[in-house]
C-alpha cells in the first residue's frame, strides 16, 4: 500500500523527521506511538501534503506512485485520508455541503459521475447507518461550535464517506472521554476491510484497546526506534517511554 523510505523532513529549518522507514500493506493497522515532540504528527502531516513541511530526503511510494510529487488534493483523491488532530472550523459551509463537494471531487478524479444532492443524501444515509450515527452534525457549519468529541467524530464521518484506502488518524483519541473514544473506535473498526489500511498516531495505549493494531512502532527523535506487535503498546503503557530513551542512549 505505502512504502516510506529514509524520510527526512524539516519545519522552519529544523529537522523533525530523521529517516523514517515504514511499510504498510493492505488490510494492516499500524500504530505509531511516541513521546511528545517525537515527530508523530509531522509524519502524518507530511503524508497528507502540508506545505509547511519540507521533505529533504527519502521517498514515499503509494500504490507505485510518488506521493511527494502529489498535491494534497491529489493524495486525497487517490485514497489517502488524514483525520486531523485539530480539525479546522469552516464558517458558513454546512457539513453536508462540504462532504458532498469532497466526495464529488474524489468521484470526478476517479472518472465517476458526481452525485446530485438527493443521491448524496442516500449515500450519506447509508454511511451513517453503517457506523450507527445520526445526522445531527450534517446541517451545522463544518466543525464550528462543535465540542472536541464532535470534531473528532466529524473526522471519522468524513473518512466513512470518502472511503479511503489509507487512513491516517492523528491523535484521534486526544481530548475524548471514554464513551466518545469507544464510539469513534467502533466506527473505525466497522470501516476496516482486508483492502484498506490504517495508521494510528497516538500518544497513549488506550485507543489501541479498542482498535487493535497489527504492528506498533515507537517513534523517538524523528526515527522509528522500536517495532513490534500489539504487546509493545502494553509494555509502553506499563513502562512509559523513558526506557526506550535509555535503550537508545545505551545503543549510541
Amino acid at each position: 500500500m505505502i512504502e516510506i523510505k529514509d524520510l527526512h523532513a524539516n519545519v522552519a529549518g529544523t529537522e523533525i523527521l530523521k529517516g523514517i522507514d515504514l511499510t504498510v500493506n493492505p488490510g494492516e493497522v499500524h500504530a505509531i506511538m511516541g513521546p511528545n515532540g517525537s515527530g508523530k504528527s509531522t509524519l502524518a502531516q507530511v503524508l497528507a501534503g502540508h506545505p509547511n513541511y519540507e521533505v529533504t530526503r527519502g521517498s514515499v511510494t503509494y500504490e507505485g506512485k510518488d506521493v511527494l510529487e502529489m498535491e494534497p488534493e491529489e493524495r486525497a483523491c487517490e485514497g489517502i485520508f488524514l483525520a486531523f488532530q485539530y480539525p479546522i472550523e469552516i464558517h458558513g459551509i454546512s457539513n453536508a455541503y462540504f462532504l458532498r463537494a469532497a466526495v464529488n471531487s474524489v468521484r470526478k478524479h476517479q472518472g465517476l459521475e458526481e452525485y446530485d444532492t438527493l443521491e448524496f443524501l442516500d449515500v450519506l444515509d447509508e454511511k451513517l447507518k453503517a457506523i450507527g450515527w445520526d445526522d445531527s452534525l450534517m446541517n451545522r457549519p463544518v466543525n464550528q461550535g462543535f465540542s472536541g468529541g464532535e470534531k473528532k467524530r466529524n473526522e471519522i464521518l468524513q473518512m466513512a464517506v470518502l472511503n479511503p484506502k489509507l487512513a491516517i488518524l492523528d491523535e484521534t483519541d486526544s481530548g475524548l472521554d471514554i464513551d466518545a473514544l469507544k464510539t469513534v473506535a467502533e466506527a473505525v473498526n466497522k470501516l476496516r476491510t482486508k483492502d484498506n489500511s490504517t495508521i494510528l498516531v497516538t500518544h497513549y495505549q488506550r485507543l489501541l484497546t479498542y482498535i487493535e493494531p497489527d504492528f506498533v512502532h515507537v517513534l523517538a527523535n524523528g526515527r522509528i526506534v522500536k517495532s513490534g506487535g500489539k504487546e509493545l503498546a502494553l509494555e509502553l503503557e506499563a513502562r512509559g517511554y523513558d526506557w526506550i530513551k535509555t535503550d537508545m542512549a545505551a545503543a549510541v
Binding site: 488534493e73 486525497a76 480539525p87 469532497a102
Partner: peptide, 9 residues
C-alpha cells in the same frame, strides 16, 4: 489545506 486534504482543488 483542510479542504484540499479532502480532495477539493
Amino acid at each position: 489545506l483542510y479542504l484540499r486534504t479532502r480532495g477539493i482543488s
